[in-house]
C-alpha cells in the first residue's frame, strides 16, 4: 500500500471509530408518562380537577413530579385553557374551573377535559382526556335519624334524578369516613334517592355533639367524584381535656407535678443537709485546732 493510501485508510478508520462512538453515545431512551384526570365536585360548588402522572420504573408505576401539564376544557385551544400546572412530588396537580370558562361550562350538560404534556428531556409527550356529565348530590335528614342522599343529573336544561348510582353515606372522621351503619354502600332508586338509618348513636362529636355526615359518589364513570356534607347534632358531646396547664411531666417548670417536687426536694434536702452537717464538722475541727493554737 502506498503511504498516501495508508494515511487515507487511517483517516477513514478514525472517522469510522468516531462515528461508532457517536452512535453508541446516544442519549438514554425517554420513558413514557401516564396521565390520569379526576373530576371532583364538593358541596355542589365549583368543580376541580386532579391530574396524576406516573411512569413505569423497574417494572413498577411510580408517581412523577415536575411534569408540566396544560389542562383544557373540551379542546386544545388557548381560549379553553383551564390551567397550566406542574405536578408535585406525589405526581399530582390540581386546578379549579376558572371564571373565564363559566359561560362555556354552563352552555353544555356534558364536558370533556384534555390534559397535554409536551414532553421533556426524560419523558415522551403524553395526552389524556376525560368526559363527564354535570351532576350534583343533595343530602337530607329527618328527625328519626334517617339520611337520604339524592343524585341529580343536568338534562335538557333541568335537573333529573338518576337511578342506579352507587354512593356512600358516612360520618366524616379525622382520617377516614365511617359508614353510618353496617352497610358499606347504597344505590339510588328511580327517584335518585338512597336512604340510610343512622346507627352510630354513641359516636363522639364536638363540644355540642355535632358530627358531619357525608354522602359521596366515588370514581363514577359518568359523574366523577361528587360529595356533600351536612352537620347534624347526633353525636355525643366531647369536651377536649387540655392538660397543658396542669401539673404534668411534660408541662412548663412552674407546673411540675407535686409528687416530683416533693420527692426531688426531699432527696436534695436530705443529702445536702448531711453535707452541710459535715461542713459544720469541718469548722468544728478548725475551731478545735485554733483553740489549741491559742492556748499554747
Amino acid at each position: 500500500m502506498k503511504p498516501s493510501n495508508k494515511k487515507l485508510a487511517g483517516l477513514l478508520s478514525l472517522i469510522f471509530l468516531l462515528s461508532c462512538y457517536a452512535t453508541f453515545s446516544q442519549e438514554a431512551p425517554k420513558n413514557d408518562v401516564s396521565i390520569a384526570i379526576n373530576y371532583f365536585i364538593d358541596n355542589n360548588q365549583v368543580p376541580h380537577l386532579l391530574v396524576k402522572t406516573k411512569s413505569k420504573v423497574d417494572g413498577r408505576f411510580k408517581p412523577v413530579g415536575d411534569i408540566n401539564i396544560k389542562l383544557f376544557l373540551e379542546k386544545d385551544t388557548a381560549g379553553a385553557l383551564i390551567a397550566n400546572m406542574t405536578t408535585n412530588g406525589k405526581g399530582e396537580a390540581t386546578a379549579l374551573i376558572p371564571p373565564s370558562l363559566k359561560d362555556r361550562w354552563k352552555a353544555s350538560v356534558k364536558h370533556s377535559f384534555l390534559a397535554v404534556f409536551e414532553g421533556n428531556k426524560k419523558y415522551e409527550p403524553a395526552k389524556a382526556d376525560l368526559a363527564m356529565s354535570r351532576a350534583k348530590i343533595l343530602l337530607d335528614t329527618s328527625a328519626d335519624k334517617k339520611i337520604t342522599a339524592t343524585v341529580w343529573e343536568m338534562k335538557d336544561a333541568s335537573w333529573k334524578p338518576v337511578k342506579g348510582v352507587e354512593l356512600k353515606i358516612a360520618i366524616r372522621r379525622l382520617d377516614a369516613d365511617l359508614s353510618v351503619n353496617e352497610k358499606p354502600s347504597f344505590t339510588t332508586d328511580s327517584l335518585g334517592q338512597a336512604s340510610a338509618d343512622f346507627k352510630r348513636d354513641s359516636i363522639p362529636g364536638d363540644a355540642k355533639g355535632n358530627i358531619i355526615l357525608v354522602a359521596k359518589v366515588e370514581d363514577n364513570d359518568q359523574y366523577g367524584n361528587l360529595s356533600i356534607e351536612q352537620t347534624v347534632p347526633w353525636g355525643t358531646t366531647y369536651l377536649h381535656e387540655n392538660t397543658f396547664n396542669r401539673r404534668t411531666l411534660f408541662a412548663t417548670r412552674n407546673k411540675t407535678p407535686l409528687w416530683l417536687l416533693l420527692m426531688a426536694y426531699s432527696i436534695v434536702i436530705t443529702v445536702w443537709g448531711i453535707l452541710v452537717f459535715l461542713v459544720i464538722g469541718l469548722f468544728r475541727i478548725r475551731k478545735l485546732g485554733q483553740e489549741i493554737s491559742s492556748s499554747t
Partner: peptide
C-alpha cells in the same frame, strides 16, 4: 494548719 491530730478532731473526721 488547724489540724492538730487531737482525739476529738480524729473522732469528728
Amino acid at each position: 494548719s488547724f489540724w492538730k491530730g487531737t482525739p476529738e478532731q480524729f473522732k469528728i473526721s
